[in-house]
Design a protein around this nucleic acid. Structure first.
Lengths: 230, 230
DNA sequence: TAGATTGTTAATCGATTAACAATC
DNA sequence: TAGATTGTTAATCGATTAACAATC
């Protein structure tokens, strides 16, 4: 019994990175299908819509501990609930946004971020012209308040959306204030103690992958044309 | 000889997805180090700074065809050049942004997107109040012009930053206009013909990974405390 | 019941890491 | 030269896919 429990625990700790990345995709997809009135769904339907392998979907679903019914499939709302639990969406994490430029504002206004477990509590900006203005439900605070706000509100996550040049300084300030995790949108590699979780958003990396895929596709089409001229 | 050439070609076509994702990270990192005056760098230095394995770095560098020097390492500017070639950054791809909200504006203003091979040529928005306004160097055009602009300028890539509800309609319009690839920031799964490359940005997915990592870390710390109370 | 779909074990595939000779 | 670092083969690790019995 004890061993079983330990295994279960490990299976969630040790979830493969690739599987973890797919989880929120399933979540968003299933929410969408649910709104369309779908209550039961098979692994092959999910797989087809998300361009995955049905067995992979079933393995991933197994990680949520939801069991499907042969011949019908999985209960959509059950999957949604268990994915939310798995991804800790119910346990709201307090966060601040540093940098109230367009990206910061876009994130603050992002519909349903709360639905993903993030509670944006404050926004900060260097620019005196921005301090005091409203962004969504937040009021932009001066950078000088940052440390105090982080400490007073037990902020765990900071979102960095300042320009490249300021990012490291902001990072240092956040670390000193006791932040636990940083979601970094600045296109720069931050230095921080190992105990701080840093996730770099890397918008350019994502673009590069698309760009490369497009290039390869065109190259292949070009080669095919040369090989077999119509 | 012919076989050799074919292998080389394949090695770039078949680059492992994970390796491809790391390439732009190396690129940004090396650019940063170059600005700091670094001209030569070893795989272990790169590995340490980016939290990778030195052998992995060497394997990745091998994909760029750059050869390093034992005892000194790799030439930084050579690596940068070859990474740019590999990622096709020199071959500017025409693109449009659909949706001139905060996210769209943030992307348009994103410093050095051109440096990543993307040439943002036009912005579109549904909102008559936004049409005609300036965003960076672009003027926002009405959605009704979309198809014509895409056709006239041989636009290959479209960036979708409209709200969820409008994303599928925009996608359909883009496909009809002959777009080849879509970089989708709307939190929704788009349906399009297989020939269209779609890359979903999925900001929430990224957050979820961070959130899960944080949760696991706290759980582990909690367990450790219980096991060995100080 | 028959048949579709699940859950899971085994096989395959692919990426990462270890080991080590080559070399500057 | 000695020693650090590369480039590459082989070993390991881990994720995906195939196969198939269980079951509704």
């Amino acid at each position: 019994m004890k061993i079983r429990k330990h295994q279960d625990l490990e299976s969630e700790f040790d979830m493969p990175q690739p599987a973890l990345r797919r989880m929120p995709v399933y979540y968003g997809y299933l929410k969408q299908r649910q709104e369309q009135g779908v209550t039961v769904i098979s692994s092959s339907t999910i797989a087809e819509d998300l361009n995955l392998h049905p067995v992979q979907v079933r393995k991933d679903m197994a990680l949520t501990r939801v069991v499907g019914k042969p011949r019908t499939g999985f209960n959509v709302s059950e999957l949604i609930n268990e994915l939310a639990r798995l991804l800790d969406y119910n346990n709201l994490k307090n966060a601040v946004v540093v940098g109230a430029g367009h990206l910061g504002v876009a994130l603050i206004n992002y519909k349903g971020f709360q639905g993903y477990g993030l509670n944006l509590m404050a926004a900060f900006d260097h620019d005196p012209a921005k301090v005091g203005t409203n962004v969504g439900k937040l009021v932009v605070s001066p950078m000088s308040d940052l440390s105090q706000v982080v400490k007073d509100n037990k902020i765990q996550i900071a979102v960095i959306t300042v320009p490249q040049e300021q990012a490291q300084a902001v990072c240092d300030q956040l670390v000193a204030a006791g932040i636990r995790a940083i979601w970094n949108f600045a296109p720069i590699h931050l230095h921080a103690p190992e105990s701080i979780l840093i996730q770099n958003e890397n918008i350019a990396a994502s673009l590069s992958v698309l760009s490369k895929r497009l290039q390869d596709k065109e190259l292949q089409e070009g080669l095919r044309e040369k090989a077999q001229p119509s």
